[in-house]
Simulated scan of single mutants.
Amino acid sequence: MYIGEFARLAGTTPKAIRLYEQLGLLPEPRRRGKYRVYRAEDLEWVAFIREAQRLGCKLSELVPLLAGLTRLAEFPWQAVEQLVAGKLAQIEAEMARLQRQHQGLSQCAALLAQHPCRYGAPVRQDRGEWDHPVEVDQAHEVA
C-alpha cells in the first residue's frame, strides 16, 4: 500500500510517516518507482510509536530503541521495559511534587479563609493610623 492509505490505516498523516522514516523509527520502505510501498507489518511499528507518544515518550527517546531495526523480531523489549520504568519514575516524582504543591496551596487557602480582610474589613497596618477619626467629606453629608 502507498503512503496515503498506510497513514490513514495507521491513524496518522503522511507527513508523520515521513518524519518517522527520517528519524529512523520505521524501517526503510520498499519502493515502486518513486512511491513508498508499505506492508501490513509496518502498521505495528506505527502503532507502537503512536502509543509510546500517547504515554508521554518523545520521538527522540524512541530513536535509540528503534533506529536501524528492520524486523519486529529484533524488537528491543528489554530497552522498552527500561524506558517504561524511567517514565514511571518521572511520573511518580512529578506526582509527589504536585502533592506537595497541593498541600501548600491548601494551607494557604485555609490561612486566607481566616484572614480578617477576607470580607473587605480593613486590616490595621499601624495602630496610630486608625486612632484618628477620618474626616468626612462635607459634600457627601446628608442634612
Rank of each mutant, 00 (worst) to 15 (best):
V84S: 06
E21A: 00
P76E: 05
Y119C: 09
V136Y: 09
L43H: 11
F6T: 05
Y38P: 09
L55V: 06
D42K: 04
T13F: 01
R124L: 14
A47V: 03
V46A: 01
V46L: 02
V37L: 03
V80L: 09
A79E: 14
L43P: 12
Q125M: 15
I49Y: 01
R8M: 07
V46D: 02
T12M: 02
Q114K: 02
C117D: 15
L62E: 03
C117H: 07
A73S: 12
L25R: 05
G104P: 00
C108D: 15
R97S: 13
A96R: 08
I91F: 14
Q99K: 15
E21Y: 03
Q107E: 15
E74A: 04
P27W: 05
A40F: 07
Y20D: 00
T12Q: 00
R124C: 10
I49V: 02
L9Q: 11
D42P: 04
W77C: 07
L72V: 02
L88H: 13
Q125Y: 08
V136N: 09
R36S: 08
L105M: 13
C57Y: 01
A85P: 02
E61R: 04
A96E: 14
W130H: 10
A113G: 05
G11T: 00
L83C: 06
A109P: 07
L9S: 06
R8E: 08
G56F: 11
V134S: 06
A10E: 02
Q82S: 07
C108N: 10
V123I: 14
